[in-house]
Design a protein around this nucleic acid. Structure first.
Length: 913
RNA sequence: GGGCCUGUAGAUCAGGGGUAGAUCGUUGCGUUCGCAACGCAAAGGCCGCGGGUUCGAAUCCCGCCGGGUCCA
């Protein structure tokens, strides 16, 4: 391909070669180089043989990189959070380019600087299993990068300059440039594609230089792996230099972990009581060998791991078992080191552990870390290690600010995990015992169930079951089996109708206080009307659409819904009148509805701000919905909001109202706004477009497209109604504002008044009185129970004489008026304590109730209470059943009671007589 | 966002249309110089809430509330 025939290569004595192993092309200065430089074609040669002229640590390498590019015309940009707040398609920041997607890369929004350089912390959890084991995998890494956003006709630099910069950077670090190969590796991903070169040194991929200039397009002329692409107008230099790998290459340590965080690895080794393995040359060689071999293979999954172990064991002349004994604890230490760094970033950037979304990922890492710590018998609290990491990052002072919150979160998470494990262990014991008694194997379904519904990892199930004495085999594919159980949600089809109409002028922004307007009809699609301008707010940002009327002369149609389709606003009406293109219509808003929405919307911002000030900086809005009579606001928080906090939020929100703060609205350049206010702007979601609407009320600043009152005083009272935990880690606050709030308060008063009237006490006395009533009610119930038992005894004595003799059995058939089932049962049971008595009782309470009880001897003779009751009940139009000793039944026809009793006696006679 | 599990005595749980149970804990009595242990006995339940089905619901169905958990 011509894509790679760079002038720079030609002018600097590079030769293009084809790797005899993988067949890929690569460029090198050294004509002797045979292979492409990429594992598995070659293996690591830098371990024990550092490639730069001196050793760097994380911060000195980062600084060397950024200042190099600064010197070469790039502007240094601060890092973005690891939680991708500005995007709704990914949770975590996975690459430096992710910072600039989608609006900068699409060309809609200019970059914060151009060209720019950045060192962006990224988190990828895809290879979690390999972390610690492969010697090179990390969940968290910094992607150093320089980006250049070009437009046709406005090119800043492209491929040649990019490779040149890479070369000179490497040279400035003291690399012998003969040692580097640029491997051709076309790149595609996320709807974009382009040529790319991988920068290989010593068998390690230090960087990737991507030249993104294609976008996936239907019917595009360029075909890559079956998808068609087209050239973009804007084309982007997207580089990624692995900071940790550079550090590793500069030190040549056995593993990346030893290179990047030697201090923490050492401290953890101490805590775990493990010998400082890497100081021991013999051990260092094992880990070097392991990293070299892992470098050339995929080690995901048990089978692959075992294969690696075997290779390493063979190469140093030992057994797999011995090797495992040495390596596993050290690998765990590496993992913990990596994971706690990951947690420092996640929690430091404000992720709240939860069972959904990014919070779930945080919990996953956290629990994995706790498990590893337990295995190593590290008793130090997790937070201590995370704090160690935070102290180790003086370049991220923002983490220290949040330390108190982080401490509380980690503490709570540790407790939760301990609870889960404890509950889990009990459950597993029980389940295992069950199968042991049945002398069966524990079925796989059961183990999946334990994991799926109770969160008990299969490893723990196996361990606990072993104690009970049951062996369990776990398939390698366990986790994919679980995944299979959960079907995927179908994606809705995109059926947005395309309108070839100009953007509607948004009068609701220009005249927020106005409730009527005139406009021209641009199009009519059935009952949907498009105007050139409108004052009707379309549904969006959690605010419902405006209602009102549209009229032409005398004809009036109701507007029932308003939607915005890419800026074209469509009014859905109930009209059967033919609105025509060109008509001038008069629109009138249902102002009460709109006003209620405005109040609730501005109130939402105020409550959000109040919640943040009461609960802490980690509070982040995850959703909100307004209506005319209430609004709700979902916030990330790691525990339930207490009653006191609830009241305090309410109080502070109302104080903001009483201050009558002005509501400022400005349209701002997106990048400018992000720079000034940060990503807190995107509480309510990420709006599209170059310019965004910024709303400021008090200390709250958000990008918001909603309609608002001009001063907080217009909101009126804000009444918090309740909090709810909609998900672990997400609290929902419901409230009403303005007139709706007053209505709520009145409704509550009504409830209180009704309740106190019913009890004839004042509302103040209500709690005490209700309490007393409830206690008394319980006492009476018990009393009643006791009296019934006494009464039953008395009745038995009184009625014994009425029994008829049936072949030696005493059969008593009697109607006891008004008795309820319980009474009947008590009496019947009392009778049947006599072995030879059969009691057949009935009452006429709410229809017919029947109870039959038979003494022990009667039962032996074949009297079956259940059968008798069944037959009797049929007669009275119902059903019944029970055990031979006692049975209940009933029906609806009270006039047949005598008949039923006779039937009962007859049945006994049939059996015995 | 999509599932699944779960709510019974102070605690841990069993039962799963037909008189609400076990163990521990509590209280009393016995035994003891006293304690522990043991023996006997008792107290302690809106079976989460509201509807429905049924002669009858802790149990089945629906809704709500609370707790847990998995997947994306």
């Amino acid at each position: 391909m011509d894509e790679y025939q760079l002038d720079y290569f030609k002018e600097n004595g590079f030769v293009r070669k084809q790797c005899p192993k993988c067949g890929k092309n690569f460029w090198t200065r050294d004509a002797e180089t045979e292979f492409c430089g990429d594992p598995p074609c070659v293996s690591y040669s830098f371990i024990g043989a550092p490639v730069f002229k001196k050793e760097y640590d994380i911060s000195s390498m980062r600084e060397a990189y950024l200042s190099f590019f600064e010197k070469h015309g790039h502007t240094r940009v601060s890092r973005y959070p690891v939680i991708a707040r500005w995007r709704d398609d990914i949770y975590l920041t996975i690459a430096s380019i992710a910072d600039f997607q989608p609006f900068v890369t699409s060309g809609l929004v200019p970059p914060p600087a151009n060209p720019l350089t950045i060192s962006q912390p990224c988190i990828r959890l895809d290879d979690l299993d390999a972390v610690g084991r492969s010697g090179r995998h990390l969940t968290t890494f910094e992607m150093m990068a320089h980006h250049c956003f070009n437009k046709r006709g406005e090119e800043i630099y492209w491929k040649d300059r990019t490779v040149e910069l890479c070369d000179s950077l490497l040279k400035s670090l003291g690399l012998d440039l003969d040692a580097v190969t640029y491997k051709e590796a076309p790149w595609a991903g996320g709807g974009n594609a382009g040529p790319s070169v991988e920068v290989m040194v010593g068998g390690l991929e230090l960087a990737t230089l991507v030249f993104m200039d294609l976008k996936q397009t239907k019917g595009g002329s360029i075909d890559i792996k079956g998808d068609s692409y087209e050239k973009m107008d804007n084309y982007i230099v997207d580089t990624g230099y692995g900071l940790e790998r550079f550090v590793w290459a500069s030190k040549g340590s056995p593993t990346i972990y030893d290179a990047v965080f030697p201090k923490i690895v050492n401290e953890l080794m101490d805590l775990a009581g493990i010998e400082h393995a890497i100081d021991n040359p013999e051990y260092a060689e094992i880990f070097s060998q392991n990293a070299r071999m892992a470098g050339v293979m995929d080690i995901s999954g048990q089978a692959n791991l075992l294969q690696l172990r075997k290779k390493v064991a063979d190469s140093i002349g030992t057994t797999v078992e011995k090797l495992q004994r040495i390596m596993v604890p050290v690998e765990s230490v590496y993992s913990i080191t990596d994971h706690t760094r990951c947690l420092a970033f996640m929690l430091g950037d404000g992720i709240i552990p939860s069972n959904v979304k990014a919070g779930y990922l945080a919990r996953l890492v956290l629990r994995r870390t706790l498990r590893l710590m337990k295995e190593l018998e590290i008793r130090e609290p997790l937070i201590e290690i995370i704090e160690m990491q935070i102290r180790n990052f003086p370049e991220y002072p923002e983490f220290k600010e949040r330390l108190d919150t982080i401490r509380e979160i980690v503490g709570l998470e540790e407790e939760k995990y301990a609870d889960t494990i404890e509950r889990g262990t009990k459950l597993v014991r029980k389940t295992a015992q069950h199968f042991k008694e049945k002398k069966e194997k524990m079925p796989l379904g059961e183990i999946i169930q334990l994991y799926d519904t109770h969160g008990i990892p299969p490893e723990i199930t196996r361990e606990v079951a072993k104690e009970i004495g049951i062996d369990i085999e776990l398939p390698d594919t366990f986790y994919s089996l679980v995944a299979k159980k959960h079907s995927k949600a179908e994606e809705d089809e995109d059926k947005a109708l395309k309108l070839d109409l100009p953007q509607t002028r948004k009068l609701y922004y220009e005249y927020p206080e106005q409730s009527d307007f005139e406009a021209t009809v641009l199009d009519v699609i059935e009952k949907n009307i498009v105007l050139d301008r409108t004052i009707f707010y379309p549904e969006g940002g959690g605010q419902p659409a405006d209602h009102g009327t549209l009229s032409v002369n005398d004809y009036v149609a109701n507007v029932t819904d308003v939607q915005s389709l890419n800026g074209v606003i469509v009014h859905e009406t109930d009209s059967d009148f033919g609105f025509k293109k060109g008509d001038t219509v008069k629109g009138i808003l249902d102002w009460e509805r709109r006003l209620a929405h405005m109040r609730h919307h501005t109130a939402t911002h105020i409550v959000n701000e109040a919640a943040k000030s009461v609960l802490g900086k980690h509070i982040w809005q995850t959703g909100a919905q307004k209506s005319t009579d209430r609004a709700r606001l979902d916030l990330t928080h790691f525990k339930r909001i207490s009653e006191d906090e609830f009241k305090e939020i309410e109080l502070r929100a109302n104080r903001s109202v009483m201050k009558n703060l002005p509501v400022h609205i400005d349209w701002m350049d997106r990048i400018e706004a992000e720079k000034r206010y940060g990503f807190v702007l995107y509480q309510g979601g990420v709006p599209p477009g170059k310019d965004i609407r910024i709303l400021r009320v008090g200390n709250d600043v958000e990008a918001c497209g909603g309609t608002h009152v001009s001063n907080t005083g217009f909101i009126g009272p804000i009444k918090l109604l309740k909090t709810e935990r909609i998900q672990d880690g997400v609290e929902r606050i419901e409230f009403s504002a303005g007139e709706a709030a007053i209505k709520r308060l009145q409704e509550r008063d009504d409830l209180l008044n009704k309740a106190s009237e019913a009890l004839r006490v004042s509302p103040e006395q209500l709690p005490d009185t209700v309490n007393r009533f409830f206690e008394e009610w319980k006492d009476f119930k018990k009393e009643n129970e006791r009296l019934k038992a006494e009464l039953a005894e008395a009745r038995v004595k009184a009625m014994m004489g009425d029994a008829v003799d049936v072949n030696g059995l005493k059969v008593l058939a009697k109607k006891i008026p008004h008795a309820d089932v319980e009474e009947l049962i008590k009496v019947a049971t009392e009778f049947s304590k006599n072995d030879d008595v059969v009691a057949i009782l009935a009452s006429d309470k709410s229809g017919v109730k029947i109870v039959v009880a038979a003494g022990a001897r009667a039962q032996k003779l074949g009297v079956n209470s259940g059968a008798i009751v069944r037959e009797m009940s049929k007669l009275v139009g119902g059903g019944g059943g029970g055990k031979p000793g006692i049975a209940q039944g009933g029906g609806t026809d009270a006039s047949k009671i005598e008949e039923a009793l006779e039937k009962g006696v007859e049945m006994v006679r049939e059996k015995v007589g």
